[in-house]
């Protein structure tokens, strides 16, 4: 699986606690919302990176193992993300979205999370355009269709919904809260 990241950290060959010590140092160079890949060979690092993310508030996306190298993915937290301040008024609940997906309705879903978040689990058929690329890529989307926008908590998707409405999209719904509570079918990128 190829995952787009903003930064790679080589922690191969290092023993505990060095992988998290290096991670801590390196994440300071990331912007909030950016994704880092940590390559490690310490078998304990999977549990440790996960626990570290929990205690520091960063988002642990997942781990892939390849040729005995563990690749951990983290997304740097941004302070305002957890308290979603919804401004786009047309919203859709996860349950309603699930009903549409399961009802085999023609449903357009735009996932505005980072590619690494998308890779570790997304709604089947959802198109991935990260929020910060939307400005340059919105023309890939069909303006007149109903468009359901999803992210992790409903905050980035709210911004995306506002942006697309400005661009003349007529039927945009912000799916709330977002993938963190999604119970329906999921695909992972292989």
């Amino acid at each position: 699986m190829e995952v787009t990241v903003n930064k790679q950290l080589d922690a191969k060959g290092l023993a505990c606690p060095m992988p998290i010590v290096k991670t801590k140092k390196e994440i300071q160079n990331l912007e909030p919302g950016q994704v880092m890949e940590i390559q490690a060979t310490d078998k304990g690092s999977t549990a440790d990176i996960k626990a570290w993310a929990e205690s520091t508030g960063h988002q642990y996306l997942g781990t892939k193992e390849h040729d005995e190298v563990l690749k951990h993915y983290l997304r740097k937290a941004s302070a305002d993300e957890e308290k979603a301040e919804t401004k786009h008024e047309d919203i859709l609940s996860l349950d309603d979205l699930l009903a549409k997906v399961e009802g085999n309705e023609e449903v357009q879903i735009l996932d505005v999370r980072e590619p690494a978040e998308y890779a570790f689990g997304h709604i089947p058929g959802a198109v991935n355009i990260p929020l910060d690329e939307l400005e340059n890529r919105f023309e890939e989307l069909e303006k007149n269709d109903e468009l359901n926008i999803v992210c992790r908590t409903g905050n980035r998707s709210d911004l995306a919904a506002q942006k697309l409405t400005e661009k003349g999209f007529g039927n945009v719904k912000n799916v709330v809260p977002g993938m963190k509570d999604w119970k329906g079918p999921m695909n992972t990128k292989q």
């Binding site: 505990c16 606690p17 998290i20 010590v21 991670t23 801590k24 440790d48 570290w52 205690s55 520091t56």
Partner: peptide, 8 residues
Amino acid sequence: TAAAASDA
């Protein structure tokens, strides 16, 4: 060091 790296 692990604790310090976890912002403790």
